[in-house]
């Protein structure tokens, strides 16, 4: 056997000598057992290995610890928002209790002789604006996603997606500003609204914010449908648009539903656009042409002027809790349907 001539043989010996046995106890233990029998096996635990293993374990410990702290903070978000609202549950502060948002009259009027905290106008306002936004955004975003995924030539496709993502990157305060300064006046001039800022103008602004979200999620869902489906349909003599509507769209439907749910969640919580573009007056009305005030805008415009720890302050946090719960529920549903889409398609392909 020519075992002794192996590349590293001399190196190995040299290394043993050059690395003074700082961890001699480690190396010695295994040495005699192997050294005698096998000329080339070196000790199982060379000194640097023990140090390396310790660093490795410390590294894992550190990374895990940081991860847990960060994740704990994530869970704290709900707890701390709820904590500021919680005292309302067991006592009445400044004449406000946890039931105040449900008591008549149906008015939200926190400042005045007799403050009124009925939450209904805010909920109606939020739903009104959100609904308008969804009605405008859904057909546009879905049609555009369908065009990008199914009909657009590839070269064009590479441009449309980033372009729509640019819209997602426009800060909402800028969209709100645009509606407030420009668009609302155009609308009023065109339709002669009594109020320049109203639910419709806010809804249009909000549509700008949710279009990219609905577009991106549903475009992803459409492109994740395997080619096989399309080919099968085209081979049967269906045209491209028929294939898109009858085969691809139904196959991607859970993902598209997810897109709508996520868009809805985004619209409900969006703050700066409605703050700037809605007129910000809480009127209980079903008309889309009067000013409204949403849940999020109420927090934004009132929290700056309330007494810390007071009843009004806590009611605003309570609204925050409601917003958190509603959007979390919607996110959860959206994620579920997105997962269902992936399962459905991975099972089929």
């Amino acid at each position: 056997m020519k075992g002794n001539s192996r590349i590293g043989a001399e190196n190995g010996v040299g290394k043993m000598e050059s690395a003074p046995s700082r961890h001699a106890d480690n190396t010695a233990a295994d040495d005699p057992a192997t050294e005698g029998q096998t000329p080339f096996s070196r000790p199982l635990f060379p000194p640097q290995s023990a140090v390396r293993n310790r660093i490795d374990r410390l590294g894992e410990l550190f990374i895990s610890a940081v991860a847990f702290v960060v994740i704990a903070i994530i869970f704290l978000i709900f707890i701390y928002v709820a904590r500021e609202a919680a005292p309302l549950a067991w006592r009445t502060i400044d004449g406000i209790s946890i039931w105040s948002p449900l008591q008549t009259p149906y008015t939200w009027q926190p400042v005045g002789g007799v403050p009124k905290f009925n939450i209904l106008p805010l909920i109606v306002g939020t739903l009104k604006v959100t609904l308008i936004a969804m009605l405008l955004a859904t057909p546009l975003a879905l049609a555009a996603a369908l065009y990008t995924a199914e009909f657009a030539p590839p070269s064009l496709r590479e441009w449309i997606k980033p372009a729509v993502e640019v819209l997602a990157g426009i800060p909402s305060v800028v969209i709100g500003f645009f509606v407030l300064i420009v668009l609302a006046s155009w609308l009023q001039d065109a339709f002669g609204f009594q109020f320049r800022l109203n639910a419709l103008s806010a809804g249009i602004g909000l549509a700008f914010a949710v279009i990219p979200l609905i577009y991106t999620v549903s475009e992803d869902a459409l492109t994740s449908v395997p080619k096989l489906y399309r080919e099968a349909s085209l081979a049967l003599g269906a045209s491209k648009p028929q294939t898109a509507v009858r085969v691809v769209l139904p196959a991607a439907s859970p993902g598209i539903f997810a897109a709508l749910v996520l868009g809805f969640g985004r619209a409900i919580g969006e703050t700066m656009i409605v703050l700037l573009a809605s007129g910000n007056a809480s009127m209980l009305s079903l008309s889309p042409f009067v000013p409204v005030r949403t849940l999020s805008a109420t927090i934004a415009s009132e929290l700056g002027e309330v007494v810390f720890g007071g009843g009004h302050y806590r009611v605003l946090f309570l609204i925050g809790v409601v917003l958190f719960l509603i959007t979390s529920l919607l996110n959860w549903i959206g994620a579920r349907y997105n997962r269902r889409l992936r399962q459905r398609l991975s099972g089929a392909a």
Binding site: A33, T34, Q37, S41, L44, F45, A50
Partner: peptide, 11 residues
């Protein structure tokens, strides 16, 4: 080399 690869002391 006669040493248990799956023993807990194996590095």
């Amino acid at each position: 080399d006669g040493q248990d690869v799956y023993s807990s002391s194996m590095d």
